[in-house]
Nucleic acid binder design. Sequence first.
DNA 1: GGCAAACACGAGTGATCACTCGCGTTTCTC
DNA 2: GAGAAACGCGAGTGATCACTCGTGTTTGCC
Lengths: 228, 228
Amino acid sequence: MSEEPKPRRRQARGERRIAQLLQAAANVFCANGYTASSTNAIAREAHVSPGTLYQYFPNKEAIAIELGERLLHQMREAHGQAFTPENLALPLPGLLDAVVDPLIEFNCANPAFLALMHGSEVPGRIAEEHDELHATLLTRVQEVIAHYAPTLPAEDRLRTAGMTFAAFKGGLDLVLAAPEGAERDATIAELKTLLLRYLSPLVEPPVTESPSVQSPSVERPVTTTPSR
Amino acid sequence: MSEEPKPRRRQARGERRIAQLLQAAANVFCANGYTASSTNAIAREAHVSPGTLYQYFPNKEAIAIELGERLLHQMREAHGQAFTPENLALPLPGLLDAVVDPLIEFNCANPAFLALMHGSEVPGRIAEEHDELHATLLTRVQEVIAHYAPTLPAEDRLRTAGMTFAAFKGGLDLVLAAPEGAERDATIAELKTLLLRYLSPLVEPPVTESPSVQSPSVERPVTTTPSR
DNA sequence: GGCAAACACGAGTGATCACTCGCGTTTCTC
DNA sequence: GAGAAACGCGAGTGATCACTCGTGTTTGCC
């Protein structure tokens, strides 16, 4: 009935330990996957005894869930600022920069995120929340497509959004596999090119007074700004 | 020194058991991932005792390796017939059909393949062989691109091939997630559209006597034949 | 300074897993 | 049909893992 039957008062030290443990868990999960990671290994990575770990988490799954929720929250922030209305006013290449860069940035900075979300071995709870995020992102992409191609039938829009997102995920893996630096930047630019070429034929020119101008800008190998 | 210190004579019954065990292993690996699958569970799935399983495989890893090698072999056959020289003579949409369809077919029929190749939890041996296949496929894609765009610098060609393959993998996941039937077919067609729009701007018209004709056919939302 | 609660420890516990072993059954070979 | 070898079984074994518990230390509060 009551929401919090355990009003355990945490000290500052405790909060620090939790953060420390979650960081260690992220490293270990990232290296070995969820199932193959032992709680003792996480405790060792955090320079802490197994008993201490279980003072803050009731079981192994809870560690993954807490870590997953924190990452998911950061992810939501990242994509929240990516899909702002003013970005929608941008031409397609600009929008791609505005949307793709933060998402890539986040996944580069938090490799544990994909490791935790992608496996079929993760506890069900994480999978559910990941599905929610997935659905949210898909909706956003659909909205963007609807904005650029208002006359596209809803069915086509859904299919296009799904494929756009799937291609992005594939490209994201490639970006993460590339070594940081120039090569990674080039891969990111290439991913944007892919998305631009895929979506360009769909955009309908905004209704203006001049009905003749119309150049989908797809002949040149488009280079969007390489971020930073 | 000798190559085969164990010339164990297998009876027909034994070969059948092996196939049965590998099929069971494919199901279990596919459902739970490699690490979380127990050898006892595989034996149970095959309606066989744990002892019998270990009559044919020295350890758990050997099961995954044998299964992986058989799938890899089938995969090589599938992509071998996909990249034939006569397919290279086809226009780009035709080539996409010829290459994409068999690969998708294979992965639909053998979901264990991706489950075994994708995880970071698999025994090192599998990962190595998968990397080899990956490199082979990448080379093939590069050759195809070189055929369609002979003047493209090698560096660009490599990047394009990598992104093409990455996008295909992303799209493949989407296809596998779609329910079989019309929806899956539509997803496959959309994947081909994506690849076509990405690659079309690169193709250079074959050198003929008429130097003026040149229409990259990218304005219309291209529909490749939906296979079968 | 003294008390209670939060923090920290690490050896210990029960469950599970990969793998073995001894023995009985089927199949092949002559 | 008899001997050998492949096949088949399932209880058992040692290792590892998630998790606990008794005890000692640090911190917040009066």
